[in-house]
């Protein structure tokens, strides 16, 4: 088991590396809102994710950004099947897992893992670090050889920049950054292909964030990992991602290669989002054009008709109020859902 992590094996994995790990098509996750005591009935539906499609290649990082309520975390949970999708397909390593039952999912889960936002809430305070990291191995029956399992924990701790003699301590003895490293070691224990990272650095102090961001990038290079990196911090996402999808009210509004998205955002929402983030340089800030969108994200319970962003969009046209723009492929792997860039034909 230890050898399988050796760099040669992984280097091979990376050479044959352009294959698709994940393809999500028209994913929908709707939550019913129930009312009534004796006769429960649905009174409304929150369309948290409403028709999301993207693909992710081996060794690649796709950043998923957007403001709260846009559906980015729900998308991540549905991809891991920790939520059951209402509709759509989730092709993971070639098989559609959208309708897998629990038993079928168990076999797949070894290869898809999650790193959570809150390093305080996501580690059991009554378990030692060793037990936390061993748990996924035990669940999957890979810890029967105790000596090998022990060695594996030591190896994983070293891999995430901790020391093996920390294994018998409890989570409270660690700082936020160290706890996040423990969470990463646990996610790596089963040698997953895909890791969904949900805001993995946003709970950390700024001086610690860089350590964890660098660790994610080093691990990707060494192990050929594929990341779905969900975050609201556009600077962190830019640093770590190859491609970025911008979400708004349950939809992807724009998806593009990193440098293109940041240099030339096409969707007015992407433009607004980027303009809102201040750059840590007063001279750059003073010279930057300001574009502030008004209002806040409307309720996902009643998304606006037509384009969901039209109520806040500075470039909204009459058509935007009635016709919902589709995510349309432009050149270079870029797609935008906006009538400005893909006029309605006919």
């Amino acid at each position: 088991m230890q050898n399988s992590l050796s760099s040669e094996v992984r280097a091979d994995a990376r050479v044959s590396a352009t294959d698709e790990v994940l393809r999500v098509s028209d994913l929908k996750v709707h939550f019913p809102i129930m009312s009534g005591v004796l006769f429960k009935h649905e009174i409304a539906t929150v369309k948290a994710v409403d028709g999301v499609s993207f693909a992710l290649n081996r060794g690649e990082t796709l950043g998923l950004v957007g403001e709260s309520g846009c559906g980015k975390s729900t998308t991540g949970l549905a991809v891991l099947r920790m939520l059951t999708p209402t509709a759509g397909r989730i092709l993971f390593e070639g098989a559609d897992i959208a309708k897998h039952d629990a038993a079928a999912m168990r076999a797949v889960r070894r290869r898809m893992q999650m790193v959570y936002q809150d390093p305080y809430g996501s580690l059991n305070p009554r378990m030692t670090v060793r037990d936390i990291i061993l748990e996924p191995l035990e669940v999957h029956g890979l810890a029967d050889d105790r000596a090998a399992a022990r060695a594996r924990v030591d190896e994983l701790l070293r891999l995430v920049g901790l020391l093996p003699d920390m294994a018998d301590r409890y989570p409270h003895e660690f700082s936020g950054g160290q706890r996040q490293r423990i969470g990463i070691a646990r996610a790596l224990a089963l040698e997953p292909t895909l890791i969904v990272c949900d805001e993995p650095v946003s709970a950390l102090d700024v001086s610690i964030q860089a350590q964890v961001v660098n660790l994610f990038m080093d691990l990707q290079e060494r192990l050929g990992l594929t990341y779905l990196f969900i975050a609201h911090d556009l600077a962190v996402v830019r640093h770590i991602s190859d491609r970025i999808a911008v979400m708004y009210l349950g939809r992807i509004v724009e998806i593009a290669r990193r440098d293109e998205l940041y240099a030339r955002p096409l969707h007015p929402y992407t433009q607004a989002l980027l303009a809102a983030v201040p750059v840590a340089d007063p001279e750059v800030e003073a010279a930057r054009p300001r574009m502030i969108v008004t209002g806040e994200v409307p309720s996902a319970l009643r998304p606006p008709p037509g384009c969901r962003f039209h109520t806040r969009c500075p470039s909204a046209m009459p058509v935007c109020k009635t016709i919902d723009p589709e995510l349309t492929d432009l050149s270079n792997g870029r797609a935008v859902a906006c009538h400005l860039h893909a006029p309605v034909r006919g």
Partner: peptide, 17 residues
């Protein structure tokens, strides 16, 4: 240590140890 929206993406972040 903090990535910037206009920073060089090839540059590794230099964390505070």
């Amino acid at each position: 240590s903090v990535p910037r929206l206009d920073g060089d993406t090839r540059r590794r972040l230099i964390p505070i140890d």
